[in-house]
């Protein structure tokens, strides 16, 4: 699975970085920085996707 950010939706709330601190950090403006996008679809990743208040974080099959 591939983790993607829809940059037109992301407002930099930061929940994804809080839930996945090993995989996502934040830049100086608060927007997420992904450390690698190919991921196993584990529970923590799905929870982060579901938690995004802007629906900007997505998992896609590729």
């Amino acid at each position: 699975m591939t983790l993607e950010i829809d940059w037109t939706r992301c407002d930099g709330h930061g929940l994804c970085a809080a839930l996945l601190p090993d995989r996502i950090s934040r830049d100086e403006w608060g927007f997420p920085v992904l450390h690698g996008t190919k991921l196993p679809p584990d529970t923590a990743v799905r929870r982060a996707v579901a938690a995004c208040p802007a629906l900007a974080l997505r998992l896609t099959r590729t």
Partner: peptide, 9 residues
């Protein structure tokens, strides 16, 4: 101005 990194960066 749609995307944060572009808008601020």
């Amino acid at each position: 101005g749609q995307c944060g990194p572009c808008r601020f960066g």
